[in-house]
Amino acid sequence: MSDVKPRIRLDKKTAQKGDVIEVKTLVSHVMESGQRRDSAGNVIPRKIINKFTVDLNGKPLFSADIEPAVSANPYMQFRFKAQESGTLTFTWIDDDGTKITAQEKITVS
């Protein structure tokens, strides 16, 4: 586990069934592309967040397979239709296998 603290914003945490909830996430990460050399001419090794997943009560809701062309401090925003109350689990996976996770609860009535 990493001690990087991701930041998450939901435009609402309580919703009527069928409402659209907007989710914004930010995580600090250099997203080193592996396509650059340092001053000594050595390739700077690739180190990126290569996957971002969001589950609702363990079921996949949204995910992204990420390449080096995504900017540093990756920002991910998406929307979903509220169907059930529960826990959103956010996971960022680093090239080195590190996982960053966070959770948010939503109430749908």
Binding site: F62, A64, F78, R79, F80
Partner: peptide, 8 residues
């Protein structure tokens, strides 16, 4: 389950 196909 997504309900909306949109990303940013």
């Amino acid at each position: 389950l997504s309900g909306v196909a949109e990303a940013n």
